[in-house]
């Protein structure tokens, strides 16, 4: 249990996927303009992460023992299929949510946080339960970072930013400060 808590907190804040591993930066900068969209995209990504974690575990346990060189290829195929699957389910179950997520849903496929999750899970040798907890932590951490960034940017819209710094440079500096704040979580699991 203690180990699971460490995995969860580690992925959620201490080694936040976005702010410490730099994974999922495209949506982090691309979709963090509005808080609500950011939050929804975070949830959808978390969901895909959990599916990927389960699938990666199954692949690692049953298939890739014999064919380790197919790991990367099979992970990508699994992620693409998982996203497609989620897209179909959301479309059926809640057309309203589907419309709200729009283009961001298929874009989850190219989110490196998801492939990163599957690869880290493999290199650390996580089991099924550990993998799911890891995915929940990582997805939660991604959502948290995205939501924080979106709130900061909504706030910054109202302030007087020099024209020179507007755009990507400004967002990067914001992210740097956010990442510094997250460094305060280091040491959480070990004291």
């Amino acid at each position: 249990m203690k180990e699971l808590v460490w995995i969860f907190l580690g992925a959620l804040v201490v080694n936040n996927f976005t702010l410490s591993y730099f994974l999922g930066l495209c949506p982090f900068f691309g979709v963090s303009g509005k808080l609500q969209t950011a939050f929804r995209l975070g949830l959808a990504t978390t969901f895909v992460m959990v599916i990927t974690a389960i699938a990666a575990w199954a692949l690692n346990t049953f298939v890739l023992v014999q064919f380790p060189y197919l790991r990367l290829l099979s992970f990508i195929v699994v992620i693409a299929s998982a996203v497609q699957f989620v897209e179909m389910v959301v479309k059926k179950a809640s057309p309203a949510l589907f419309a709200a997520l729009g283009i961001f849903l298929p874009l989850i496929t190219t989110n490196c946080a998801i492939l990163g999750l599957a690869l880290f899970q493999t290199s650390r040798g996580y089991g099924l339960l550990q993998g799911i907890v890891f995915a929940l932590g990582a997805g939660g951490g991604f959502t948290l970072a995205l939501a924080l960034m979106a709130s900061l940017r909504e706030e910054a819209k109202l302030s007087d930013v020099p024209a020179l710094a507007r755009g990507t440079a400004f967002n990067l500096l914001l992210a740097g400060i956010l990442a510094m704040a997250f460094m305060g979580f280091a040491g959480l699991g070990s004291s």
């Binding site: 702010l19 410490s20 591993y21 730099f22 020179l164 710094a165 990507t168 440079a169 400004f170 967002n171 990067l172 500096l173 992210a175 740097g176 400060i177 990442a179 510094m180 460094m183």
Partner: peptide, 15 residues
């Protein structure tokens, strides 16, 4: 050399 430095440095270069 820590993660925040990456964001800050790229931000400064883009600036």
């Amino acid at each position: 050399v820590l993660p925040p430095g990456g964001f800050l440095m790229l931000g400064l270069i883009l600036l």
